[in-house]
Design a protein around this nucleic acid. Structure first.
Lengths: 103, 103
DNA sequence: TGCGCATATGAGTGATAGCGCATATACTAG
DNA sequence: CTAGTATATGCGCTATCACTCATATGCGCA
């Protein structure tokens, strides 16, 4: 029935949902390619500690991010660092698409 | 502060949110590259008329989709047909990412 | 062992999203 | 003009989400 049966819509929707939260995107961005302690994320984003932990858990359980303990700190990093490229591509597509609309 | 300041996080989040609904993704897929009357979308997805209209409005207002009247019918089509490729890329990335996780 | 810092978790809350029902609007045919 | 079909919209309900507060856990240090 659908022309795009070659990919799993529900799985795609779940990942998209996780990436549809500005605070989560900010957290991902603030991590960048390096592993970063939670406190640094808190400082970079200005979000509350609880809130950052809340979002990190969601992304961790989705396999987007992983956290490893180093002494008293827990360092979080992207599970697959190409995620940032994916976001960038998406953003680029939005710009291009918008340009097309006004052409 | 963020390493990816070159794209608009809020705008990205909004589009992602719209694409994070399985029914909406199904609707987009069922349209494919062709303009399709609402009734055909209803038939293809099995969703209620009200529900399809509801989702179409959201995607229309977001500029993902446009509808044009042809007689009694309203034909909907992708505003930018490359959207399907974007979804496909995203889906592909998810698969690759998952493979990496188990390597 | 006990204190303090870093982070996680559970409960509760307000806002929002998705959905169905009923109804309205736009168009066509007779 | 009327009846029927195609689609949109307003309202109300429920589930889910993002968030906060309070508290728990894990670690290092005195």
């Amino acid at each position: 029935m659908e022309s795009c049966s070659h990919f799993d819509i529900d799985k795609l929707a779940k990942v998209m949902k996780i990436l549809s939260e500005p605070n989560r995107l900010n957290i991902l961005c603030s991590m960048g390619l390096e592993c970063t302690p939670v406190s640094a994320i808190i400082a970079a984003t200005g979000l509350s500690q609880t809130n950052v932990s809340f979002h990190l858990r969601i992304m961790r359980e989705a396999g987007l991010v992983k956290g490893e303990r180093r002494g008293a700190f827990i360092y979080y990093c992207l599970y697959d660092t190409t995620l940032l490229e994916v976001l960038e591509n998406m953003s680029q597509w939005m710009d291009d698409s918008q340009k097309k609309a006004f052409a």
